[in-house]
């Protein structure tokens, strides 16, 4: 059996110099050198203290190093840039997707307009077309314009965090219901047209109209109808008293007539239909038939109730 004998003068662990270097000599060899040099100078009778320029340079370098290290430590204790980066990437994605949704919605509106145009040019009998048009106006599938009323609610105490000083979804619901009850023909909140199945609700601190968030601190409720009648009816309703209550919470409100308002069409709705379940429980389901939608015209009598229903859905 042959044994490997290390050559004389060669350490058995010579192949591991790197590790040895790290483990055995952690102290900078420069210190030992410097100590030897000092000892030699002292033995030769030379001055061992460094000269003044060297001291100044040493001082400056030391100040610089201290500064750099402190800045590095302070900076590292701040929130990690990677986290904020990830956040901004996500935020960008959200913005991008929202834009896509916006584009597709626009396209849908354009296509709806084209369908409308083709219907007019087509063969529908005029009476049917008239009913169709009125229904569309009522259920908010076409853009409308005309005189009306604008009610603006503005958050109070903008600097504070007091929830009571903010406009809530229920506040907007109340105003909208009062406007329907006062004879509004079409209503939009923050530029979002309300339809028979719209919901005004809140998610966290944001108010959503048909899932579209509203931008505070000012919220505009636009209603189309005869300006004078609307204002008179609204003044007779419980609306002004409610706005008065809001004022005590610091929420400012204004009711103004407008000669020309134009409200966009409501967002396209998914078609809902009822199916009869296998075991009939006898209670009506939460979904309505498409035909039912067109009969839900928001006339002064029942319109308010309709909106109230949907508002409750959302609340």
């Amino acid at each position: 059996m042959k044994q490997t004998v290390p050559e004389p003068g060669r350490r058995p662990d010579a192949s591991m110099t790197l590790l040895n270097e790290v483990m055995r000599r952690p102290l900078d060899p420069g210190y030992a050198d410097a100590a030897r040099r000092r000892a030699r100078r002292a033995a030769a009778g030379e001055p061992t203290e460094p000269r003044v320029p060297a001291l100044v340079v040493a001082m400056l370098v030391a100040v610089g190093l201290g500064l750099v290290v402190t800045v590095a430590v302070v900076h590292l204790r701040a929130p990690q840039p990677a986290v904020t980066q990830a956040r901004s990437v996500l935020a960008d994605q959200v913005a991008e997707r929202s834009m896509q949704v916006e584009e597709l919605t626009d396209r849908s509106v354009a296509l709806a307009a084209e369908v409308d145009r083709l219907e007019r040019a087509g063969t529908l009998p005029s009476s049917l077309r008239e009913t169709n048009d009125l229904d569309k106006l009522a259920n908010g599938t076409t853009a409308v314009s005309g005189p009306g009323v604008v009610i603006t609610l503005t958050d109070g105490g903008l600097a504070g965090d007091d929830r009571d000083q903010r406009v809530w979804d229920t506040d907007l619901q109340f105003v909208v219901n009062a406007l329907w009850a006062s004879g509004a023909e079409a209503v939009a909140v923050g530029g979002e047209r309300l339809t028979a199945v719209s919901a005004i609700r809140s998610a966290g601190d944001a108010i959503l109209v048909d899932l579209q968030p509203l931008n505070g601190p000012s919220y505009q409720v636009e209603a189309i109808g005869d300006t004078e009648d609307l204002q008179v009816e609204f003044a007779r309703s419980s609306g002004p008293a409610f706005l008065q209550v809001l004022t005590t919470h610091g929420i400012e409100s204004s009711v103004q007539g407008a000669d020309e308002l134009s409200l966009p069409a409501g967002r396209p709705q998914t078609l809902r239909f009822a199916t009869s379940p296998a075991t009939d429980t006898g209670s009506p389901g939460p979904t309505g038939t498409p035909g039912e939608t067109s009969s839900r015209a928001p006339d002064p009598g029942t319109g308010g109730n309709d909106q109230d229903d949907t508002a409750k859905d959302g609340a």
Partner: peptide, 13 residues
Amino acid sequence: IPVIGLVVGVIAG
């Protein structure tokens, strides 16, 4: 000297 310099640098930072 370098220790004083480092302290000055840290405070400045």
